[in-house]
Amino acid sequence: MKVLVVGSNGQIGQRLIQLLKASQEHTVRAMVRKKEQADAYEKQGVETVLADLEGTVDSIAAAAEGCDAIVFTAGSGGKTGHDKTLLIDLDGAVKTIEAAEKAGIGRFIMISAIQANNRENWHTEIVPYYAAKHYADRLLESSKLTYTILRPGILLNEPGTGKVFAAENITSGSIPREDVAHAILAALDDKHTYKRAFDLIAGDDLIVDALKKV
C-alpha cells in the first residue's frame, strides 16, 4: 500500500514516515509545504511532494495521485491562532477528504483528539481545536471513504511501550507519539478498524491486539 502522509513535518508524521519507510508491506510519500522540508526527506530516500492545506483541493488530489491511502496527521499547532485551527485542522482536513475522493483513494486514516466526538468532554481552553476535529471527523464518517479515526489522548514524547488501550469512549489518558504512529501503521490494512472511530491511550494490550477489541 502506498501511503500519503499529510502532516509529514509534525511529530507523529515524522515517526510514521520512518515506520512506513522500514515497512515491507507499504511505501510512503511525504506531503510537505516547504522545499527545505522536501529536501530533508529526499536525503533520507523518502519520496516527497509539495502541497499546502491552504491550497486547492485539486492540488492536494494531485499530490495524492497514485497512492492507495492517506493518513492525516496535520495540525496547526498550539502557537497559532484560531484562524489557523479553522484553516488547517478543519478546512485542511475536509479538503484532504475531498481530495481523496477526487483521486479515487479509498483508505483514509484521521488523527483526531480524545473525546472529540463528545462535546461535554472538550477541554475548555481549546474548544475551537476540538470543534475543528469534531466536524472534520463527522464529515469523514459521512463520506464514502474506508476511514479509521484514531482519537489519541494527551501526546507524550517519551518512548513508546507498544501497548495501548483502544475503545470508543475513553474519557482521559495519555499516550506516547511513538505508539500512535505504530497504531496507525497497524490499522492501515486491519479490516477490523475500517469505518471505526475510537479513543487511544497507553494501556496493557499489544497494539495489534488492542485494535481487534474496538
Rank of each mutant, 00 (worst) to 15 (best):
T73E: 09
K133H: 09
S59Q: 15
L155M: 10
V32W: 01
P152K: 06
Q24E: 14
K102V: 01
Y147P: 08
A51W: 07
S76K: 09
Q37W: 04
A38K: 12
L156N: 10
R107I: 08
A210N: 01
L19T: 04
K163N: 10
L140H: 02
T124I: 12
K144Q: 10
G160D: 12
I207R: 05
H26P: 01
E98L: 13
A63M: 02
E98C: 00
R119K: 14
A116C: 00
G203R: 03
V208D: 13
V208T: 12
W122A: 09
Y130A: 02
L86D: 10
D205Y: 15
D189S: 14
Y130P: 05
S172P: 00
G104Y: 00
I60W: 01
L90E: 14
V46W: 05
R151D: 01
G77M: 01
K191C: 06
A116Y: 03
L20H: 05
R119W: 10
A69V: 03
A131W: 03
I170E: 02
Q44E: 15
G77A: 02
A166W: 02
R33L: 06
L50N: 03
Q37V: 00
A30G: 12
K102S: 04
A116D: 00
V3L: 07
D209S: 10
M31D: 07
C67H: 08
D52K: 08
P128I: 06
I111S: 00
A30S: 12
A63D: 08
N117Q: 06
R138T: 02
E168R: 10
H192Q: 04
A181V: 09
A93E: 02
A40E: 14
D89N: 11
L53W: 02
G78K: 10
D190L: 14
N157W: 04
